[in-house]
Design a protein around this nucleic acid. Structure first.
Lengths: 170, 170
DNA sequence: GGGGCCATGTAATCGGTTACATGATTGA
DNA sequence: TCAATCATGTAACCGATTACATGGCCCC
């Protein structure tokens, strides 16, 4: 149930409408916690009903601007400091590795070299994202940069691991 | 919908009952694709209904032994070679990083050093797992070892990244 | 005999995905 | 005026989680 916390986190920065949040998701959090439009509007309603956010303004076209309440901020801080991630992240990619034995060796190797290529592409996409962002001194810049570094290192690691694994099969 | 492929993959090695598969999950695939008992029995019924596996024997206590059919093997090969993972993996851990700015700096640092410790523990747990397994020449040994290496490298990377990030906050 | 394990299943709930539906406003 | 964008919502479905439920078999 982390989408609610993602929304609280974004609203901690500044008030926003569902539509605003949707766009900010796509350009920042989508890489670590994808969410759909349907889900976000539903979650915002629930958060408002729970008193963690409130409708602070209404604009044209039925636009509703949400603002974090004190309770919402308390919940956000609680989530950050008192709770630990509990679910093991699922990896579709790694699951396949377990079963590569049912393929002829050359196809197994092809899977691994495919992963190398994919890691390279992801790495470059993150570099491009890094260049496209106007990094300031604000908090989301500082921590967003740290999260992006994680992605860069992850893809480097993945490429080297896939190279090692492909070599090992020979 | 990867649980079905995980089950097909395990049954490709040898026939097994739901109960067998449950235990084999816990000792091998649980780190990349956790699944509950309820889910597995349900999925096995669906796979049997779809003709990808069949009940090849019935034992005491209502035990049903499932065997992969040719269609099941074809589906497994198709999944391995023709499809790519599509969902972005969600990371609860990384999501929090984006919002560390709402905490006083020392608490943000504490979160990162906590991640370092956690990575060390995970690393050691994987090393212990590695020692506890009787690595043979069979396919699941070869590829299981490769998957485990991924986990080791991931945790190493994560520890170094967290160290770097904590330093950066100073 | 009885405790522990083997073995399978159902029901309720939840978070997430896909698709559908609707309409207001703005700017070229 | 009309296309693009802003803006919110509903409904159906699916996979995953939690809890509950049941009973047979084996060995001490």
């Amino acid at each position: 149930m982390s989408l609610r916390h993602a929304l609280l986190g974004l609203l901690a920065e500044r008030p926003a409408s569902g539509y605003d949040l949707l766009k900010r998701f796509d350009t920042s959090l989508a890489n670590v916690w994808p969410a759909t439009q349907s889900q976000m509007y539903g979650e915002l309603s629930k958060l408002a009903a729970a008193g963690l956010i409130t409708v602070s303004a209404e604009g044209p076209r039925g636009r509703k601007e949400y603002t974090l309440t004190d309770e919402g901020m308390a919940e956000l801080r609680h989530w950050l400091t008192e709770t630990r991630p509990q679910r093991t992240p699922r990896s579709d990619t790694l699951l396949r590795v377990f079963f590569l034995g049912v393929l002829p060796r050359e196809q197994a190797t092809a899977y691994l070299t495919g992963l190398m290529d994919h890691s390279d592409e992801e790495y470059e996409a993150l570099r491009a994202l890094e260049r496209s962002i106007d990094w300031g001194e604000d908090q989301l810049s500082v921590y967003g940069r740290i999260a992006l570094e994680y992605g860069l290192r992850l893809n480097e690691m993945q490429r080297e691991w896939a190279r090692w694994a492909a070599d090992r099969l020979r």
